[in-house]
C-alpha cells in the first residue's frame, strides 16, 4: 500500500493506493483523487508554469504554462525549451509559445494578455 497526498486541489486528501490490487485508491473525497492516485503510481505528471521573455510590454516577462500535465521526469527538459524564447507584445492569453514540448504533444501557452506599450 502506497500512501500519497492528493495534490489535485488544496484539500490534500490522504490517499492509500494499492499497487497489487489494480491501483485501487482509497481516502479520496472526489473522483479526481482516484485518477491522481492511480496516475501518480503508474505515470506521475505535473503542470509546469514558468515565464518567457517579452519585449514591448509593461513587464519583461510573460507567464506561461503547459496546456496539459506532462510526465514528471521531463520537467527540467521542458524548462530548457523555454530558454531561448522571446515574445513580442502584444500577446493574447492562450497563445502557443512552444509546440509539442519534449515530444509530449503538449504545448507551452501564455497565461495572460500583455498589451503593447
Amino acid at each position: 500500500m502506497t500512501e500519497l497526498i492528493c495534490i489535485v486541489c488544496p484539500r490534500g486528501c490522504h490517499l492509500q493506493v494499492d499497487p497489487e490490487n489494480g491501483c485501487r485508491v482509497r481516502g479520496n473525497q472526489c473522483p479526481r483523487g482516484e485518477t491522481y492516485g492511480r496516475d501518480e503510481l503508474i505515470n506521475p505528471t505535473r503542470m509546469i508554469t514558468s515565464t518567457v521573455r517579452i519585449k514591448g510590454a509593461m513587464y519583461p516577462r510573460c507567464p506561461v504554462k503547459t496546456s496539459a500535465p506532462i510526465p514528471k521526469h521531463l520537467i527540467s527538459e521542458a524548462m530548457k525549451a523555454l530558454d531561448g524564447i522571446t515574445l513580442n507584445a502584444p500577446v493574447k492569453c492562450g497563445q502557443v509559445v512552444v509546440e509539442n514540448v519534449c515530444g509530449t504533444g503538449v504545448s507551452f501557452i501564455t497565461t495572460r494578455d500583455m498589451q503593447q506599450l
Binding site: 489535485v8 486541489c9 488544496p10 503542470m47 508554469t49 514558468s50 515565464t51 507567464p63 504554462k65 497565461t111
Partner: peptide, 15 residues
C-alpha cells in the same frame, strides 16, 4: 503564475 486557482469557483484549474 503557478496553477491551482479557481478549482472551487470556476471548477477548473487556472493560474
Amino acid at each position: 503564475i503557478h496553477n491551482g486557482f479557481g478549482l472551487h469557483y470556476f471548477k477548473e484549474e487556472l493560474t
